[in-house]
Design a protein around this nucleic acid. Structure first.
Length: 862
RNA sequence: GCCCAAGUGGCGGAACGGUAGACGCAGGGGAUUCAAAAUCCCCCGCCGCAAGGCGUGAGGGUUCGAUUCCCUCCUUGGGCACCA
């Protein structure tokens, strides 16, 4: 008998699938289509075990759908633009393009041995001119439809390197290379009008039944619909043009508790005062010496500057409130100005206590908790109950004295509208999507700046506007910070497409989120000479199952949903694709223990897994030094806990890697890669190989154990199918272990055992496709198991006629009874009361209560 | 700071509100073997001789019954608009 030799069989079957074009996506009308997509990778240089897990999940779905009679589209590509390529060029010379394509080649070479059922003929990278040229065409169509515009926006500016920094390049407020204090600087930039779609993007979440609830919730919170009051305070002796300050509030019911007005450092009034008053200028400059991320703003100490100006309260013109410039107010949200009601807002009370501003309670608890409740104006914390809770108003001005916050807000809006003080408005937190990047390695924005014509779109026939590789034969210098396109006259200088006069190209490139916002549509016709081919898009869209990391729950998925709408409006996608992903699954990461010892100065020293020996419940280096084991850490090159799939494949084969990454954890959770686990997976596959070899050669006659094995087989078909269809891969694999155990122990005849083994090969095929083809062949299966019809469970073989019921006394299990499945409740009760453990506990007394859940449980309450 | 998750034996994990620990790893015992590897079989939450008791991050609550639902807290992870 031959041994399980993955190296031989994996190559053999990969060649067979290539030959048969098993995974080539073809459009035919006789079969339903199924489009499964995993988020495409960034070409970092090597695949990691997380990729293996992600693509194996997609592959299981794809292979199962193929076996259930679908035309399957399962493509792969690369999200190839972005900063790492430029950073690599800066750090070690070379060109981002060469670096990127070199990485792609390596990664494709590493992915192919894993045997994924992918249609490689559709592969592309977003840095292919063929792809980004079509992206430029989309941009021009969006521009024409008014979906793109220009406005000023702030960026992180490094004043030493004279360059724009990404948020991740800002460390503790300083540029990562120069160490200079980062400033916020305004630039004119391009924006997509995603905020015009706020309401629609929010409401449409309800229709996404096969998306995780948590993702929909995160998106809903991100879009952030709020109902509030917009009104203006009139100012006292303010500079000309600033008679009024518009504010937006979601708590107009707290207007009588107002104690100050706060404006953003970027508010027009702040900018005006900055020019006249050096103290204001200092404070505002201080505020701007901060990154642009919301996280940083929120974590920063709340600070304000009293402008000396005041405003009049809208209900009492003799009541004046001070105007502060405050570092925590965002110009992008609402009107860039607020009123503070310290009694009912934690941030406001912190601010008020810091600057000694009055705190006035507007409402308190509705029911008497006076004993414990300390009102905010008596030194207590801000009182911020949920808006649905009824409270008692002491400084209300509209509605009932006792009402919920929601009712009070509605009443306050109605009252203010009636008094002409303001209007109720709906606002969204979602801001427009800034797509300009001051970088080289991205899709050029296809517009030209002309002195006479202004901003002029490129003509479509001039697309793609390609990135220059060099400058007239001279390599581009990436060692200088900043955007090389800015310093590239022969690329930058051009003729105006409108008037022909000398003009300058836009040197900004697009955010890489643009690239990933429509690649799923491009896969339906990757070589089309327009962004999409409507016939192909109409057939293959939508993505039936999208799989990727939870880290993309908000931005990528929201941008893609916007893009699908914009592509529909510009005629590039059908109406049904406005929501492009029918079902979404977010998978967890692969983690690995960190092996660490202490070096000099107690600095941790990290060791590679292959240098560590696990024995006697500890971990040791070769020289016997004991190593500290930190389990379940995110894989990271700097911690030396990266597992290289190439190594795993050469040691155990692709099927072992695929089996293991699916087996141990539910797919939405993180999985820890352990050497022991991989070893165990491999042993199991070898055992299946041995078992099936033996069965294939057996000629044992039929026995009375045929029937139980058949039943076991049909139960396995049911459970594994369900597991595969519902992302219960770990459960499906546990079931396959059980079925293998049953098959191994069974003394059924050869014919039934062979049938069961064929089914086992089929059920395993999505996870371990190469091994399954080999087993299928040994068992005399026709053709490729990849193309064989998925087995169907026979319902009549699944019916059980008895059921075992646990008997509980007071909720604790005390025994069990086995009864006929359809035994009447009364008889079950009788049997339960006769049970020895029940009799003993009741001790002659009558039970207080008797609960019988048919087919489930019996609970006796004593 | 804000939003969203997750926490169960020595370990990964299973469990429509209904027998907590399926399946796997590690560990223990045995079979086979001249011996070993490989393989096969059995045991395996904790305390306890046992009867029994205790156990799903912590503390409350709802329920005949809670890992599951609700509230508060702790820890870890993801996101926070220029990382992808």
């Amino acid at each position: 008998m031959s041994r399980y030799d993955p190296a031989t069989i994996e190559k053999k079957w990969q060649d067979a699938w290539d030959e048969a074009q098993t995974f080539r996506a073809t459009r035919t009308e006789d079969r339903p289509k199924y489009y499964v997509l995993e988020m495409f990778p960034y070409p970092s240089g090597r695949i990691h075990i997380g990729h293996v897990r992600n693509y194996t999940m997609g592959d299981v779905i794809a292979r199962h759908k193929l076996a259930t009679g679908h035309n399957v589209l399962h493509p792969m590509g690369f999200d190839a633009f972005g900063m790492p390529a430029e950073n690599a060029a800066m750090a070690s010379g070379g060109h981002p393009k060469d670096w990127t394509y070199g990485n792609i080649d390596t990664m494709v070479d590493q992915m192919k041995p894993l045997g994924f059922g992918l249609d490689w003929s559709r592969m592309f990278a977003t840095c292919d001119a063929e792809y980004y040229g079509q992206q430029q065409a989309l941009f021009l169509d969006f521009l024409e439809k008014g979906l793109v515009y220009r406005k000023n926006a702030v960026v992180n500016w490094d004043p030493v390197d004279m360059t724009v920094l990404a948020n991740e390049q800002v460390e503790n407020g300083r540029g990562w290379r120069s160490g200079a204090l980062v400033e916020r600087r305004e630039l004119t930039q391009w924006f997509f009008r995603i905020s015009d779609f706020s309401g629609e993007l929010l409401d449409a979440l309800d229709g996404l039944d096969d998306w995780p609830a948590k993702v929909k919730l995160m998106q809903a919170n991100w879009i952030g619909r709020s109902r509030g009051l917009q009104f203006a305070f009139s100012t006292v002796e303010a500079p000309e043009g600033f008679d009024r300050i518009e504010v937006y509030t979601t708590r107009p019911d707290t207007l009588m508790g107002a104690s100050f007005v706060g404006i953003s450092p970027d508010h027009p009034l702040a900018k005006h005062l900055e020019r006249e008053n050096s103290e204001v200028a200092d404070f505002v400059a201080e505020c701007r010496r901060m990154g642009t991320s919301e996280e940083e703003l929120e974590k920063a100490e709340k600070r304000g500057f009293d402008t000396g100006l005041t405003v009049r309260h809208p209900f009492d013109t003799s009541w004046e409130l001070p105007v502060y410039i405050a570092n925590f107010i965002l110009m992008d949200y609402g009107t860039g100005a607020i009123f503070g009601c310290p009694a009912h807002d934690e941030r406001d009370i912190e601010f008020a206590r810091k600057y000694d501003l009055p705190v006035r309670s507007v409402f308190g608890p509705a029911t008497g908790e006076e004993g414990t409740f300390i009102a905010p104006d008596e030194g207590g914390p801000a009182y911020v109950p949920p808006k649905a809770e009824t409270v008692r108003y002491v400084r209300g001005f509209a509605g009932e004295e006792a009402q919920t916050g929601d009712e009070a807000v509605d009443a306050a809006i109605a009252f203010c509208e009636e008094q002409g003080v303001g209007q109720g408005v709906t606002k969204y937190r979602l801001r427009d999507w800034g797509l300009s990047r001051q970088r080289y390695w991205g899709c050029p924005i296809p517009v030209v700046h002309c002195e006479t014509c202004g901003v002029v779109p490129e003509k479509k026939e001039n697309l793609p506007i390609e990135l220059p590789y060099d400058e007239d034969g001279t390599p581009i210098d990436f060692s200088v910070p900043g955007n090389p396109l800015d310093r590239h006259p022969s690329w930058r200088d051009c003729a105006c497409p409108k008037c022909g006069a000398p003009a300058r190209r836009e040197t900004d490139t697009m955010d890489t989120f643009v690239d990933s916002s429509w690649y799923f549509a491009r896969f339906t016709a990757p070589r089309a000479t327009t962004p999409t081919d409507m016939a192909e898009a109409d057939y293959w869209m939508n993505v039936d199952q999208y799989i990727g990391g939870i880290e993309h729950a908000i931005l990528h998925l929201l941008y893609a949903r916007f893009f699908a709408r914009a592509m529909h409006l510009t005629g590039h996608l059908p109406e049904k694709s406005k929501e492009p992903f029918n079902a979404l699954f977010t998978q967890g990461m692969v983690t690995h223990a960190i092996f660490q010892t202490k070096g000099a100065n107690d600095r941790p020293v990290y060791h590679y897994p292959e240098d560590v020996e696990l024995r006697d419940g500890g971990a040791f280096l070769e020289d016997g030094t004991e190593v500290e084991v930190i389990p379940s850490a995110k894989m990271s090159k700097s911690k030396n806990n990266v597992v290289d799939p190439v190594r795993i494949i050469s040691e155990y084969g692709a099927d072992t890697a695929r089996w293991f990454v699916l087996s141990d954890s539910p797919p939405e959770r993180d999985v820890e890669w352990t050497a022991a686990g991989a070893e165990a997976a491999h042993k199991h596959l070898a055992r299946v190989y041995r078992l099936v070899s033996e069965i294939a050669e057996s000629d044992a006659p039929a026995t009375q154990e045929d029937e139980p094995l058949k039943r076991e087989m049909h139960k396995a078909i049911r459970d594994v199918s369900l597991g595969v269809e519902s992302f219960g891969f770990n459960a499906a694999i546990a079931r396959l272990y059980a079925f293998t155990n049953a098959l191994g122990k069974s003394r059924a005849g050869a014919e039934v055992r062979r049938e069961a083994a064929r089914v086992l090969a089929q059920l395993m095929a999505p996870m371990t496709p190469h091994l399954s083809e080999e087993l299928w062949q040994m068992l005399g299966g026709a053709g490729l198991v990849a193309e064989a019809a998925w087995p169907v469970a026979d319902e009549s073989m699944l019916v059980e006629d008895t059921v075992t019921l646990p008997i509980q006394v007071n909720g604790k299990r005390r025994g069990e009874i086995t009864v006929a499945k359809d035994m009447p409740k009364e008889e079950v009760e009788k049997l339960a009361l006769e049970h020895e453990a029940v009799v003993r506990t009741l001790d002659g007394a009558a039970p207080k209560k008797l609960i019988v859940v048919p087919g489930r449980i019996v609970n006796v309450v004593a």
